[in-house]
Design a protein around this nucleic acid. Structure first.
Length: 430
RNA sequence: GGGGAGAUGGCCGAGCGGUUGAAGGCGGCACCCUGCUAAGGUGUUAUAUCCGUAAAGGGUAUCGAGGGUUCGAAUCCCUCUCUCCCCGCCA
């Protein structure tokens, strides 16, 4: 949510920034209804003040056994007028609010111009050169490797829950668990994060806080008999841990990490990435969240992104870091870096992590504030989130990068301690 | 699922329908006093928003949420949510 005061006081500036995201932007209607809102509010408060005055005076005179008919007379006209205004005020507030909450965040200055992913800017490759290890054979896509090894069972997933759901078996299941442990150990042990196990269910207020609602409800799995949704990312529960709070400056910055399963309808992605593990209704992810003071969120995004990159480096998975252009960023983001991992089986880079600074956008929605030492005023915190990293897609990357001519897959060295020392995945003995 | 109790400021805890944004205590902060680690005194201490160039000051809203009754609601009524206790069921 944007600062309504800022929209009012710097309308052109805000509009120009929104235009960078693409599409047409017209805030004139918003300005009109917002101005009307303030008019009504001032008028209402004037009448409320008078009503309170009269009520107090009635109490006073009653105690003193004085005449109050004149006051009752005034209330006879003021009462209904006020009631009418209060209703108008409420309606207008809802109108303005409804418009405000679907306006996306403003891109930060350093965000590249552009409309879609073709305009994203690659910042760096790892390893440094685009020196991808060449396979001496035709690399296969992970779904072929995984099925041949017996560790990915797409049919079983379909049987249990339909499309975009997969069963992992044996070393595949173990690999997934190992990745989770590896990532969590790295972030908690070396990067300073506190591990959290949050709920996988969230209410609408929570999903509003991080920006999934009201605009993107169709992306979420809802419960039929409870007003709850399955979380699409741990960003939702982690960030909302500071909702409605006034933190002490000393508590900042906060760094939290969590492994959760994530659930997404993928409503708009019909026919896209239908094969393999890339786009599932359910997947595991280790998430990184920062809560910071405003002046440190920019640097925090660099660090957070570095922490996600470190995961891939240790797993020896080639990747590149991309700065998303204004048109390709998510609703809540002011700036986003994506990590894209190299998938030789498909001959392309695929997103494996997305790290965003939302600045005060989410904080304003969830009323997450802090107070500086000695200050009376509260300020909104800045919130950041990033994958550290997506577990399912990492598993894909390991299969495709580690595959050998005989169909076996070499396990990255860093992961072996978490695999009971296993070095290579060979076909599952049935 | 059945029955009961409750939801007030950072915390604890008062609150006859009328100068209650809310007593009191704790904690926090500031100052004062005091020759020992400690104690005492005084004051101050909610959030949001509007008016005010700023400060001072003032208006409005907020006592779980939303409606309602009333000239006036933290106090009365209705609905919902949540918490706690007992019974049942269950991992």
């Amino acid at each position: 949510m944007l600062d309504i005061k800022q929209i009012r006081e710097q309308p052109q500036w805000v509009e120009d920034r929104l235009k960078r995201r693409g599409g047409k932007v017209d805030l004139s209607g918003f300005h009109a209804s917002e101005a009307r809102l303030r008019e009504i509010r001032v008028e209402t408060e004037k009448l409320q003040a008078r009503r309170n005055e009269i009520s107090t005076e009635i109490g006073r005179r009653k105690a003193a056994k004085q005449d109050i008919t004149e006051l009752f007379e005034e209330m006879k006209t003021l009462g209904p007028a006020l009631k009418n205004l209060e209703n108008q005020l409420r309606d207008q507030e809802r109108l303005v609010e409804a418009t405000l909450v679907v306006i996306p965040n403003l891109p930060e200055d350093s965000v590249p111009e552009g409309r879609d992913e073709r305009d994203n800017v690659v910042l760096r490759y790892w390893p440094e050169e685009k020196s991808l290890a060449q396979h001496s054979f035709q690399p296969k896509p992970h779904w072929e490797i995984g099925e041949a090894l017996g560790i990915l069972d797409f049919e079983a997933g379909t049987q249990i829950a339909g499309a975009r759901v997969t069963v992992l078996r044996g070393a595949g299941a173990r690999l997934s668990r190992a990745l989770i442990n590896f990532m969590l150990d790295l972030h908690t042990g070396e990067h300073g994060y506190t591990e959290i196990m949050p709920p996988l269910l969230a209410n609408d207020r929570t999903l509003f806080g991080t920006g999934q609602l009201p605009k993107f409800e169709e992306d979420l799995f809802a419960c039929r008999d409870n007003p709850l949704f399955l979380i699409p990312t741990a960003e939702v529960p982690l960030t909302n841990l500071v909702a409605d709070q006034i933190l002490d400056e000393k508590q900042l910055p906060m760094q939290m990490t969590a492994w959760t399963t994530c659930f997404r309808r993928e409503a708009g992605a019909a026919g896209k990435d239908t094969r393999g593990l890339i786009r599932q209704h359910q997947f595991d992810k280790v998430e990184l969240v920062w809560i910071t003071r405003p002046e440190e969120s920019g640097a925090a995004l660099e660090r957070l992104t570095g922490h996600a990159e470190e995961v891939l480096k240790r797993l020896e998975l080639p990747f590149r870091t991309v700065s998303l252009c204004a048109g390709d960023m998510g609703f809540s983001a002011a700036k986003t870096y994506d990590l894209e991992v190299w998938l030789p089986g498909q001959g392309c880079y695929r997103e494996i992590s997305s790290c965003s600074n939302t600045q005060a956008f989410q904080a304003r929605r969830m009323k997450a504030r802090f107070r500086r030492g000695g200050e009376k005023k509260t300020e909104l915190v800045h919130t950041l989130n990033g994958s550290g990293v997506a577990v399912g897609r990492t598993l894909v990357a390991i299969l495709e990068n580690g595959q050998q001519a005989d169909g076996s897959v070499v396990i990255p060295r860093a992961l072996r301690p978490f695999m009971g020392g296993m070095e290579v995945i060979t076909p599952l003995a049935v």
